[in-house]
């Protein structure tokens, strides 16, 4: 659904390229996470794919149409939720949603049902100026999905949301993907990406440093070991003792079994790497 090949782009009056030979594809029904620090080229790539930036080289197409030739038909297939929700402050949530929905052809979702699902039914007739950041973020998602786009671009869709609303948002994203939409999700939140994405790409300085499923990345870059943690008896507050065992041959490891039989067992955990650690290892920098 989304095809990007050797994509390069430099802003006017800039000597360096913001995007340097990026390549990836996103299939229908897939949630693809685009992760990277500020200035890595995430927004530039997204804006190219949305048809807002021209003058790139390489290929950037959505549903077989090159982004630089984006027309009304192209844009009708695309839904976008930006990181900072932008609405008409003097219109109500429902008026905003109906206005933006009116630009797209049928079939569309019922605005009332969508607002209800996102917990905004009671605020539907309030002006957006009175909305909290979390409410605007939810309205932002509603606007992006209301016309049932085939391709969804979401920038930090769970930013500023409480856990319950973040879960609802993730559910809606997964539902849209299950319905055949290709979802391009840009985020700093590795836990959110881990929970929602089928594949992720790490973008640094305009280049993709790694691209795979979160599970495959964790396997590849994680440590194949388990740690047994127990509390040593006899001490006043209990000293935490940890011991590491290799995952290979663990079933036959007598020392591991003996550790499990000792008193004060607290738990056993794997040493899977998190996406944050993998990003740090691959790029040498943290995500802000």
């Amino acid at each position: 659904m989304i095809e990007v090949k050797d994509l390069r782009f430099a802003y006017p009056r800039s000597r360096t390229e913001a995007v340097r030979g990026v390549e990836f594809s996103v299939e229908a029904g897939e949630v693809f996470g685009f992760l990277g620090p500020s200035g890595a080229g995430k927004s530039t790539t997204q804006r190219i794919l949305l048809g807002s930036l021209r003058g790139y080289s390489g290929r950037a197409s959505v549903a077989g149409v090159e982004a630089c030739r984006a027309d009304g038909v192209y844009r009708a297939q695309v839904g976008a939720a930006f990181e900072f929700p932008c609405f008409y402050q003097k219109l109500t949530g429902l008026e905003n949603l109906e206005l933006f929905a009116s630009f797209y052809p049928e079939p569309r979702d019922d605005p009332g049902v969508l607002l209800e699902r996102l917990g905004l039914a009671e605020a539907a007739d309030r002006r957006v100026a009175e909305y909290s950041k979390g409410m605007k973020m939810r309205l932002n998602l509603a606007r992006a999905v209301i016309h049932r786009p085939r391709v969804l671009f979401l920038d930090e869709p769970t930013s500023g949301l409480d856990p319950a609303n973040a879960r609802t948002v993730r559910e809606i994203i997964r539902e849209r993907a299950a319905g055949g939409a290709a979802v391009f999700l840009t985020t700093h939140d590795m836990a959110a990406a881990d929970a929602a994405c089928d594949r992720v790409a790490f973008l640094v300085d305009g280049r993709i440093a790694a691209c795979d499923s979160p599970a495959a990345l964790k396997r590849r870059y994680g440590k194949r070991a388990v740690v047994v943690e127990r509390e040593e008896n006899g001490t006043e507050r209990g000293t935490l003792l940890s011991r590491e065992f290799p995952l290979d041959g663990l079933g036959d490891d007598e020392a591991f079994r003996a550790e499990l039989r000792k008193p004060g067992l607290l738990g056993v955990r794997t040493l899977d790497s998190s996406l944050d650690r993998i990003f740090l290892r691959l790029t040498g920098r943290e995500l802000e």
């Binding site: 038909v73 930006f82 900072f84 932008c86 630009f103």
Partner: peptide, 14 residues
């Protein structure tokens, strides 16, 4: 000021 241009012009509205 409201940032609505971005949202308007990624839609089919020209």
């Amino acid at each position: 000021a409201q940032g609505t241009f971005r949202a308007l012009f990624v839609s089919p509205l020209r």
